[in-house]
Design a protein around this nucleic acid. Sequence first.
DNA 1: ATTGGCACTCTAGTGAGGGGACTGCCAAAT
DNA 2: ATTTGGCAGTCCCCTCACTAGAGTGCCAAT
Lengths: 358, 358
Amino acid sequence: MMTETQDTQPTKRKLKPRQRDILKALVQEYISTADPVGSETVRRVGQLEVSSATIRNELATLEKDGYVYQPYTSAGRVPTVEGYRYFVEELMDEVSLPLPQRRMIGHQFHQMRLNLDQWMSLTAAILAHTARAASLVTPPHAKSAYFKHLELIGINDAICLMILVLRDGSIHQEMLGMADPIDQETLTQTSRKLNELLKNCSAKEIKESDNPELGALEGLTRQVLGRVVDIMESIDCDAITKIYRDGLENMFCEPEFRDAEKMQQLIEIQQHHSLLEPILTGILNSNGIQVIIGGEGPYEEIEHLSLVLSRYGIRDRASGVLGIMGPRRMPYGRAISTVRYVTRLMDDLISSVYGHDG
Amino acid sequence: MMTETQDTQPTKRKLKPRQRDILKALVQEYISTADPVGSETVRRVGQLEVSSATIRNELATLEKDGYVYQPYTSAGRVPTVEGYRYFVEELMDEVSLPLPQRRMIGHQFHQMRLNLDQWMSLTAAILAHTARAASLVTPPHAKSAYFKHLELIGINDAICLMILVLRDGSIHQEMLGMADPIDQETLTQTSRKLNELLKNCSAKEIKESDNPELGALEGLTRQVLGRVVDIMESIDCDAITKIYRDGLENMFCEPEFRDAEKMQQLIEIQQHHSLLEPILTGILNSNGIQVIIGGEGPYEEIEHLSLVLSRYGIRDRASGVLGIMGPRRMPYGRAISTVRYVTRLMDDLISSVYGHDG
DNA sequence: ATTGGCACTCTAGTGAGGGGACTGCCAAAT
DNA sequence: ATTTGGCAGTCCCCTCACTAGAGTGCCAAT
C-alpha cells in the first residue's frame, strides 16, 4: 500500500498518456508554487500542444477520478492524496543526487568519529540540510538483545555505575544504589563472574537458564542480574527508543505552515513520538524507500505532512530507520534520492562495523 | 546585571509607592491578557483608590522614565524591558509551588531509574509541564575531566569499542578502527594497563607526565591514549555538550507566537544552541536563579523571549544548568518557583550521587 | 475530439466609514 | 499642589462594498 514498487489499485492505472502529462505538470507546478494550478499554466509548464480548453476537459475528468480537486469553485486544481500517490508511483522523474553533493556528504561521513550519538546527530543534520526538510533518524538496534559485556564501577559507598554492552554495540548505563558499601575489587569480581555466566545470552536464555550458579546468586550480583534482564527485555519489545531529529526550521519557509495551527500540529508530531513510533516500527520490517503521504489510509493524523523513510543496516541485527518529513507538497524526487543515498552510506557503515563477526 | 538579588541602576529605585502599585498591576494584567493595558483597567485590577485620570498622569511619568510604552498613540501601555526587570526585581509576588505539585514532582523524581539520559529528559519534561513553557536542561559536568575507568571491547577484527568513564560519572564511547586484528584478551590487558597508568589523572597531567611507561606506549595502546586525551580535553574546554529540551509546543498557545516569523526565530533558538550556549555557560558560573529578559543588554537576539535559569549541582564538580524559556510576557512568579524547586531536587540528587567521594 | 469564445464564480485586495478604547489636556475641586 | 471629571482627539480594527483578475464550465463551431 505504500511500497515504492508495489501496485496501487487497478483503477489508478487507466490514465491516458495525456492525462498523465497533465497530472505530472500539475503536481510539479503545485509543488513548486503552492498555488492552485490552472489549465493555462498546465499547458505552459507541461509544454502540451493542446489548447487550455482541452486541458480543462481533462482536468474535469481527473477531478471526477479523484486525482485533483478545486479548493473552491472556479479556482485552479490542487492534487489530492491520490494525485500525489500516482505522481510518486508513476510519474515522478527519478533524479539522483548531484555529484558534488554526494562528495560533500561522503566526506562528512568519512571524517566522523564513530561515536553513536554524534553519528546519529550528524546523519540527521545531513538529511535535513540536503533535503531542506525536517529529518528523523533512529539508532541501529538488534531485534533481540544479546549480552556482550558488563562493567561495574564504584562511584561512592552507596552507588555504583553499571555499564552494559550488548552484541549490537549498544551501550546502556544505569546507576545502582547499593545496600552496603562494596569496594571496587568486589565489584570487578562481580562483573567478571556475570560476564562469564551471561556471555552471548539473550534475556530469554538468562531467565530460563537452569544453570545452578545463576539461581544461587544473591546480594548485589542478583540485583545487577535483575537490571540486566530488565534492560535487555525492554529492548526486545520496544523497537524505537530514541529519535534523532533535525531541520525543523526548514519547515517554516513553506507557506502551508504560515498558519499557527498547522504549525502546532507539526511540532507536536515532531516532539512526541507516540504518533511516529508505529510508523517507524512498520518501516523497520520493510525494505526499500517508503513514501507516506499525509492523510492517506491510517495516516489521517499527519494530514498535510509527508514522510520519505527507509530502513538501513542489517535487518534484525543492527537496523534503524532514517528519513525526512516535509509538507505533503514536498519535492519527492530530491527527497527520495537523498534518503536513498544516505541509506546506502549507512548500510556500508553498519556492515563495516557489525557485518563480519559472530 | 541580571542576578536576582543584585542592585539595578539607582534611577530605577525612585518610584513612588503608587507608581509601583500601578506598574505592578499593569505588568500582571499584561502578562495575563497580552493586550495593552489602559488606565481604567489598571485602576480596577490594582484596586487603586484614585481616579483613572490620576493613573493616566502617573502612566505618563512611567513612560517618560522608560518603564512602559504605547504601541501607538492613544493605546494602552505595555511594559518595556526595564518595566519587566523592575517588576521581577522589586514588585513580583514570590509564590511557592503548591504542595500537590511538589508532591507529584518529588514522586516522579523518586521512582526514576538513575540513567543520565532518562534523568535529563524527565527533568526537562517536568519543567516544561509545570511551568507550561519550553524547558532546557544540560547534563551535570565537571569543570575538569579526571580519568576514572577505561574499557575496550572488541566488536570485530577491525573495530573495538572504547568506553571511557570519568570521575564525574560521565560516560564517553567511541568506536576505534584497529590496524591489525587484536583479540579480546589483549584488549583487556591494554585497558588494564591504561587504567593503572591514568588513574585519577587530568588531561593536563597525562600530557605533561614524565612517566617513561606512558612515553613508551605504541600501537593500539598509544592510539587509545590519544583518544582519551582528546576526549578529556574537549570536555575541559567546551562546557555545554548537549541540551535537553521539552515543551516547545507550550509556546504555541501564546498569542505572540501566532506570527510565523517570531515562531521561526524561536525554533531556531531552540534547535541551534549557538545562541544559547554562551548564556548557559554564563549561568554555570553564577549562583541563584537568573532571569534574562529578551532584548535586554547583550540579549538582543532573543527579543521577545525570556529565560529563567539556574545552576544546579556541585560547582566545578558536577554542575549543570536548567531552566525554562517563554515569551517575555511569562508568569515569572510561577516560572521562578518551578525552577527553584526543581533545582533543589537536582541539588539533592547530585549530592547523593557525587557528594561524598574522593 | 478539439477549440475559441463567453458568461459566470469566487478570491484577494483596496478603500471608506464607524465604533470603541484610550489618551492628553484643561479647568475646576479638594 | 494634587486630584478629578470632562471632552476633544487619535488610532486601531472591523465591516462592507467594490473591483480586478484568474480560472472555470459550457456551447457552438471546427
